[in-house]
Write a protein that binds this DNA or RNA. Structure first.
Lengths: 376, 376
DNA sequence: TCCGATTTGTTCGTATGTATG
DNA sequence: GCATACATACGAACAAATCGG
């Protein structure tokens, strides 16, 4: 059970961290806070007193309570050398993130840094909590994989606050456009393009595409999918595209595909471009039940070149993802930014050019010429 | 004009400075101070609150207010605000550890703790470095998966130091016998037993076993493998057993198996007990090249019930591993230990009984009656 | 320069909840 | 179970500083 003064305290801290209150700005008066939270003056003063003691606020009698400037103080704290870096991902255990985390951890621990991990579960609210935690502690740098990157982010202010406190951060896999942060991403549009191009060059003309549309990767890959069709003059039936959101990943895409392939109005799909390898595994289960052959009846191109490509019976054609290399590069970049910051004392997050990984296709057994025999 | 609470404050400070109150000694209770200075309780609390914030005193509900030991102030002041837990695993990204880490992270972050991760790469030297780092920082608890747990550990002293500093730690998957720590492990001997028993009950008598012998899990599973043979009166040819160390995992076990199955002195092996599912994947690749059918020609039992069991064409019979449940349980246990420590001020690491997970076999398509048809 | 409204500072009283020994 | 000690929360009153008119 949370205490009232703690609620007030956290609310004020939030307002400080998301930039509602800027340094030296006056915060709401005690009576305003009393009304706002429907608590007694005593409770408000208790909350404010705590924050004053911790150096978040300062009071001036007769004038008001003000947001403190915690930046100057930062230096003194940093004198105590504690090298700490935060990694925020959407999911810790799923899929390719462990590789990314491992890559980053190996570099960072070698450089004497300690790595703290956080996962948002692709939820903006959780992301906010994590950013608040990071802002209230002495982190030297942050590596973040954006949550629901296709949508505008309600936590932009927290990232701006990182900049204000000159804590370097970089984004991997995707980035929030508004921030123009240093980032390490794939050229996902090109990735989607070469996935599709590969099938087109094998003679496929009726190609289904399944894309996750709540992150930037998915929307970009879909863009590449469309572009390839246009480039090669292949007419694209809008019904060939299936989109889904993270929460639906276990159900909707496979259900929709089942409809597309096996319902009465089924069309003669011969190729499939998948958002990623993980999804292909679900698709393969469906096809196995329906006695459909891969690649005989359906050629499939995955994305990420994950371990799935090797363990399934049909080795999967897939787009290579840098994975642990990306993690390592991210780690090196953040170390570089920290070094620059400590020498220049200026915000350099945006001085570096984003690193864009060019995708390349790893052709394996899951794709063949349309109607054709396995190439192997 | 001096305020009342300031008088009380200065009086207490004086008593601390002139040695009337020694570190960790209980000071007068609030009601005593009320009488002594003839002020209200609120005023006393205001004075004490100030001194607590400045680190001169600390309060314990139900017990009293105590003089702080300002020698160790640096440590305590950080420890109070920073709820930090370390997780040490052998490998961060491989296999089932991501699930364990995720399970632990979800519980710990919910409890407001921050999770720092370290990986030893199964190397004692790296483990030592990590333990040194942890000992020099304010961690509240440590969850550790032992490195090379089958061997005696050269870093025992570091763990004893954790105990001396009363930092709770627990071990998962295995434990160093000398320490008798709180641990969460599987009954690996029983696991190896039921793997083998399953094949025996299907009529197999020539069963190969592959075990990793540098961790406790592997040696225990091998023990179960032997026990099952004895129990059922099946003679066991020592040549049916292959052992390997972590560094050899990509080469030796498969090479040895190839020799066992396909060389001139090959024997008629019909069943295979594998240290884990990951290894089975390598085995399956070998068998595919050799055009050997699973389960038709060889029945295979894996261990860990990992994602591999579901993605391969032949669904794998395997022993269930608690994975993220184990991570969650580990997190809850360490939180419990921290709570006890903060209340009792004694080392309680060893007061809890180790949690042992009983293994259970998940039967899928990779095992059939000897010489028989697939059961499906 | 003073006034009055606002805002924080100090102090009292009271009540109930929760942890400790 | 009980007394003790700290924790949370409400209410009220007056003091002292600030600021705009």
């Amino acid at each position: 059970m949370e205490t009232k003064y703690n609620m007030v305290k956290r609310a004020i801290q939030s307002d400080i961290m998301d930039g509602t209150y800027l340094p030296h700005q006056k915060i709401s008066s005690e009576s305003e806070l009393m009304a706002q939270f429907k608590v007694s003056r005593h409770t408000v003063r208790l909350a404010i007193g705590d924050l004053v003691a911790k150096g978040w606020l300062y009071r001036e009698q007769g004038s008001g309570t003000f947001c403190a400037d915690r930046e100057e103080e930062q230096d003194t704290i940093q004198a105590v050398e504690r090298k700490n870096i935060a990694i925020i991902t959407t999911y810790i255990s799923d899929y390719i993130f462990p590789s990314i985390i491992r890559g980053a951890e190996s570099i960072l621990s070698q450089a004497g840094y300690q790595v703290s991990i956080f996962s948002t579960n692709n939820d903006h609210e959780k992301e906010r909590e994590i950013l608040e935690k990071i802002l209230s502690q002495p982190f030297d740098g942050v590596i973040v994989e954006p949550t629901k990157s296709a949508f505008s982010n309600p936590n932009i202010n927290y990232y701006l606050n990182l900049e204000r406190l000159s804590i370097p951060y970089i984004m991997i896999n995707a980035y929030y456009d508004e921030l123009e942060p240093m980032s390490l991403v794939m050229n996902d549009e090109k990735g989607g393009f070469i996935q599709t191009e590969h099938l087109i060059q094998l003679g496929h003309t009726e190609i289904a595409g399944i894309f996750k549309t709540d992150d930037l990767q998915g929307t970009q890959r879909m863009k590449g999918f469309l572009k390839a069709h246009r480039r090669y003059g292949i007419p694209l039936n809008p019904k060939n595209i299936i989109t889904y959101h993270t929460e639906e990943k276990e159900t909707k895409p496979v259900q929709e595909l089942e409809k597309m392939l096996f319902s009465e109005e089924a069309r003669d799909i011969t190729g499939l471009v998948s958002y990623n390898d993980e999804l292909v595994m679900n698709v393969l289960n469906l096809l196995r039940n329906k006695r459909m052959q891969v690649p005989g009846d359906l050629s499939i191109v995955g994305y990420d070149d994950s371990f799935f490509t090797e363990v399934s019976e049909v080795k999967l054609t897939s787009v290579a993802h840098p994975k642990s290399d990306m993690g390592k590069a991210a780690a090196k970049t953040i170390l570089d930014l920290i070094k620059r910051k400590n020498s220049n004392k200026v915000n350099v997050s945006k001085q570096l050019e984003p690193i864009v990984y060019d995708p390349s296709l790893i052709v394996r057994g899951s794709t063949v010429k349309v109607g054709g025999v396995e190439v192997s």
